[in-house]
Design a protein around this nucleic acid. Structure first.
Lengths: 203, 203, 203, 203
DNA sequence: GATGAATGAGGATTCATTCAT
DNA sequence: TATGAATGAATCCTCATTCAT
């Protein structure tokens, strides 16, 4: 197809296209090893254009993280909140599903990027904490509180550290990132954790 | 004689000194941002000498990981194995202590390095898996088996995924690496997990 | 109609407007450090339009120099020539005034630009020499000749190098460009020089 | 001559060699148009080595200016001060010679560089002012004072602006830099100026 | 063995210039 | 004409690696 012009104007889409390409590249190679040239090539764009939308490589990195986080986290959390199931049904159903999807989601990759580069981008870490971690933990606490009020959970459930629910998700993420081939039934891991937690807090 | 060196160092220690310096540097700045010059300076050695012992920066990185892993893991695990307590006493005592020390140990830093750079060093990841993960998991399995045989644990304990014990350790590691300042009682997290697990498996 | 342009500008003015904007920019930052984008923004015009009138940045530079030179030099010299004063009155009056205005005039900035970039634009230097320097020197020579013929100056005045009159102007220009803050009474400098010159050549 | 090793260690000489090469390059092309690569090539050195001695291009520029100034100005001024001639003999002899050498000296090139780049390097301009301009002016004032005390100059000579002596030097410098080919007898220009000045101030 | 001066490939960034709209 | 998105060559600077001493 020799008709493809090498010069196209698509102002609207470029920033997202470039950020998406950058996400792929960072995911594959990490921040430091990714060359802007690579990103541009992936996005089908010249190196210079990247700089039109993102002043520096660091800017691009930040955009990528925020982008992925805001775009995905809302949809993930959104799924969870719209429910009228009993607490246990909800946990064993939508919540478990949500948790099981995390290790394969782009969030996992963002986590890796943050672990690798977080030191040099404390504002990004803060952003991630505020928009993902804090919100997630709050959601869990609210959910437990509601369960207690409904009489589904024992009052002592309020003492539960929400991170106990997150821990197997975290381990599964890291496991997959590092040992993709070494089998671990991450789904069952989370189920077991939920079993244990429910045994503890059910009324 | 002003030509006398300030201090006499045995040549045999040089490789280790360099690797230790490199570990510090990598821990502080990450792999990419660490310059060989930094490492040499930290080790009190010239840049050229570094290359005498480690052909490339990558070699040095690998040596660092292996070094830290073998040197520390043995001592950490060693502490745990020499015991004649009951299974529960052991878990609540030495094992818990071991787990609680992990997030602050060099292993946590190695984990970060592996997460950040693992993609490009699959052999390192394998090495880490074999020498840390696999050994750790096996140790847990052996321990449970012994508990079952002793009648301290229910036979169903054999089905337990050892990663359930590791999960809160993992989460605590990552939490500290990223959110050092955002308080989380990681000690209590691990205790709670152990409480839950014991409730599940105790005879 | 919101589509109506805020102000209507005649197309014929565009080249001059752009050149004026470029003059300002070059004056402020120098040739190399001036971006075409800056010039366009100053002119209230798009970058592309600049290229419609000036094929390259160099073209623009040349236009700027020629522009400023022709537009200003004529007005400056014009002020001087229309007179019927005696030679001494003329020198101490209009000519001195003209000289004293030079260091603050755009000519001074063109001089700086030529000094900085002249090497790469010999044609521009020639242009400047022909249109400013040669004309100026000739005017001085003519003036002296007239004074001699009128008996106001001694015949030996013909031997005078016109540059003696220009020298303090030159020094004042450079002084202001470089040492704006280090005070020098440039007006008095030129007066003194004229005193000395007149003492030499007066009949 | 295939024996010339491409790898030579001459730590002592490098900085000066590089600065000298840079001086040449800046003199020829100006600051902005000079590539570090050019400088390195001229110095017979790799690009990287330049950065070992000069952290940035700007540093190199500053070193060049300071270098040239300090190295040359002292020798030039030194020639002048060691004398026991009468004031007039001194002016017409060593001082005139000194002035006549200026336009062809490296100082002239530094002047051009400062005029071109001074805006962006105010500290350099200050340095130049303090080390060249101020010292030069002070020397002239001292010299006149001495002449007055000796009865060789009239007391009114103290009112003379030293810049009157410098003006033809300045003009000659600029003239040569720009109009090398357009003849001007700069030597005679300075002689004439000295004639005029002496006529004014001689007792 | 040690040193650190020297090399040079590699990558971020800028900006004059082009061209689809 | 007029715009400004898009291009890509050019250039600064870094740093792993080499090698004369």
């Amino acid at each position: 197809m020799p008709d493809q012009p090498k010069y196209q104007r698509r102002k609207e889409d470029r920033p997202r296209e470039i950020a998406d390409a950058a996400f792929e590249a960072f995911a594959e190679k990490g921040y430091a090893a990714t060359r802007i040239d690579d990103v541009a090539k992936r996005a089908g764009v010249s190196k210079g254009l990247t700089y039109l939308y993102y002043k520096t490589k660091e800017d691009l990195f930040k955009a990528v993280v925020r982008n992925v986080v805001v775009r995905r986290i809302d949809s993930l959390i959104g799924d969870v909140e719209s429910t009228e199931l009993s607490s246990e049904e909800f946990i064993r159903g939508p919540l478990l599903g949500f948790m099981q999807r995390m290790p394969g989601s782009p969030i996992a990759i963002v986590v890796r990027l943050l672990i690798a580069e977080g030191r040099r981008h404390p504002d990004l870490v803060d952003y991630y904490y505020d928009n993902v971690v804090a919100r997630g933990l709050a959601a869990i606490r609210d959910f437990i509180e509601r369960g207690v009020e409904r009489g589904e959970f024992r009052p002592a459930a309020r003492e539960l550290q929400p991170q106990l629910l997150v821990a197997p998700v975290m381990l599964s993420m890291i496991w997959r990132l590092l040992f993709a081939d070494k089998s671990l039934d991450t789904d069952r891991l989370m189920e077991s954790q939920i079993d244990m937690l429910l045994a503890q807090i059910k009324a």
